[in-house]
Design a protein around this nucleic acid. Structure first.
Length: 545
DNA sequence: CTAGGGTTAG
């Protein structure tokens, strides 16, 4: 009831944009030819006889991943003033978040209010889902609050709402409220509960949910997957393996994928390879396993993965190719990485970023910058993001390309409208410091503070390094003070600060820091280097034949 | 006809 005045308001405000949005959608539609023929005169457009049939048609468009067709059908229904019911709206609400047009869902909501289709639990539940998928958490909660009767599905929708917005603490709060309201939990509830526990690293709570899963005894494949993911997230790989082994009967791909990814995340590479060997691997499992190869610098195993991918015909999977590219780059095989990059038909921002980073980390800054320029060329549909810029900036830093670094730092804001993160400033300060431009370093710092960006430890480290190199004693001491204030217990930072004082000859401070480290019981972390000798590699040996 | 599990770049 409260929303009625708001609805007419919205309707007025959005009518003009509504028409232009539809034109945009029509231009992008794969089916626009057939539709244009039909829509030129709406009397030639025949809808199925019953509204329920049209509803299923809209729903099936959405299911097929074609929200544009769903929207076109819905819109022509409205234009023809055909009857619609609450189910028409629930179907089209699922298409709204996929169309990425601002306020589209709000427009539908307004139409629902006008036709009275917004009452009822099912309609309101789909509105909650729509708003949360469009990023309007407040609106979603508002709709939920206005619901008269809430069934378990409505509660589950609210739960996923908080999970989607990365608010696991609030999600657990919803679980508590469900308990107080005596809502009977469903499998969906437990699934969301496990996800919350995973993000909160709440081992005990998760174990209790595990108990509920066992006692409920339904949806075991899906819930076991969620359990595997939960135990992997809290570092209990053995429990994840136990869940996997104790489930008898058929297991699907997702379950294998979850376990492979969990083993890799916990650096249990040989277990990951063993699990992969149990079935014919799919593209997702291979992608996870490749991360293990990259982290492990295990070129031998990585090449096996590559062979498997080729044999099973996964070479068109962009995400898998990206992981392969990265694996070759991390193992120092830039040329292999490049030929993979060239072979990717649908290059996404990660393909480009990984290749730029591959050049940068191997000291080929010139190639990195050239590839970045190629990426930015007119007519490319892939836009660089903040990670791309980090790779470019660090490539410039490693290769001493000061001018190129300055240029890309400017582009970040001016051409792409991105706000530099502290990490970008740290890279940029590093570039200027190495070039001996200490005044540039500090003006970049002041610039950052003026933008309201708070310096992180990484920024202070970059500033301190710049001061060491340029013998900027006073401001270096300032940076040292801030760094130790921010991270007083990190031995690597204490060593860094102590090295700074050694550079400027303040041995009293060096001794002071050493005794601080002793009293805090900190030791300098051992450095390590890693090489793989073919034939002496444990993970490679346990690879399935 | 509303709600759920796995994957890639720093």
């Amino acid at each position: 009831m409260f929303l009625r005045p708001l609805a007419s308001n919205l309707q007025q405000k959005t009518t003009s944009t509504f028409i232009s949005n539809v034109i945009v959608i029509l231009n992008h539609s794969l089916h626009d030819q057939t539709f244009a023929a039909n829509s030129s005169s709406s009397s030639h457009f025949h809808f199925p006889q019953h509204i329920s049939q049209t509803n299923s048609l809209i729903a099936s468009h959405v299911r097929r991943g074609d929200p544009v067709s769903a929207w076109i059908l819905f819109h022509s229904l409205r234009r023809a003033r055909a009857d619609v019911d609450a189910y028409t709206f629930t179907s089209v609400l699922r298409a709204c978040p996929l169309l990425h047009i601002s306020h589209l869902g709000t427009q539908v909501h307004a139409q629902m209010l006008k036709t009275g289709a917004d009452s009822g639990t099912v309609a309101k539940t789909s509105l909650v889902g729509m708003y949360s998928k469009c990023g309007s958490l407040d609106e979603a909660v508002k709709v939920f609050d206005e619901m008269g009767h809430r069934d378990v599905v409505a509660w589950n929708a609210l739960l996923s709402c908080f999970l989607r917005c990365d608010l696991p603490f609030e999600a657990v709060g919803v679980l508590g409220a469900m308990g107080r309201e005596n809502v009977e939990l469903s499998g969906f509830t437990l699934c969301s509960a496990l996800k919350s526990c995973a993000s909160l690293k709440a081992l005990e709570l998760g174990r209790q949910v595990h108990g509920l899963v066992v006692s409920m005894g339904r949806d075991m494949v899906v819930l076991s997957t969620a359990l595997i993911d939960f135990y992997s997230s809290v570092g209990c790989t053995d429990d994840a393996l136990k869940v996997f082994c104790s489930l008898k009967g058929w297991k699907d791909d997702m379950m294998y994928n979850s376990l492979v990814s969990g083993c890799v995340r916990n650096r249990r590479y040989s277990d990951a390879f063993k699990v992969m060997g149990l079935v014919r691997p799919n593209a997702v499992a291979l992608t996870s396993a490749l991360v293990g190869c990259s982290e492990n610098l295990d070129l031998w195993a990585g090449k096996q993965m590559h062979c498997v991918a080729v044999r099973l015909g996964f070479t068109l999977e962009t995400q898998l190719c990206n992981a392969l590219l990265d694996m070759y780059a991390k193992c120092g095989k830039v040329l292999h990485a490049r030929s993979l990059f060239d072979g990717i038909c649908e290059k996404d921002v990660i393909s480009w970023t990984s290749m730029i980073d591959a050049y940068g980390r191997n000291g080929q800054g010139r190639e990195a910058v050239l590839l970045f320029q190629e990426m930015m060329e007119e007519g490319r549909k892939v836009l660089p993001n903040s990670v791309t810029f980090l790779s470019v900036l660090s490539a410039c830093g490693h290769s001493g390309m000061v001018e190129e670094g300055k240029k890309s730092f400017k582009l970040l804001r001016e051409k792409y409208g991105l706000e530099p993160d502290p990490e970008h400033y740290a890279c940029y300060i590093d570039i200027l410091g190495r070039a001996g431009n200490i005044e540039g370093v500090w003006s970049a710092y002041h610039n950052m503070v003026e933008q309201g960006t708070r310096p992180t430890a990484g920024v202070w480290v970059a500033l301190l390094n710049a001061c060491s190199l340029n013998q900027d004693v006073e401001r270096g001491e300032l940076a040292a003070k801030h760094l130790l204030q921010l991270e007083p217990n990190k031995s690597s930072y204490i060593v860094l600060v102590s090295n700074f004082y050694a550079t400027i000859g303040r041995w009293d401070r060096v001794d002071e820091l050493r005794s601080i480290m002793r009293t805090k019981g900190l030791v300098k972390e051992a450095g390590n280097s890693w090489i793989n000798v073919p034939g002496f590699n444990q993970h490679a040996r346990s690879l399935p034949a």
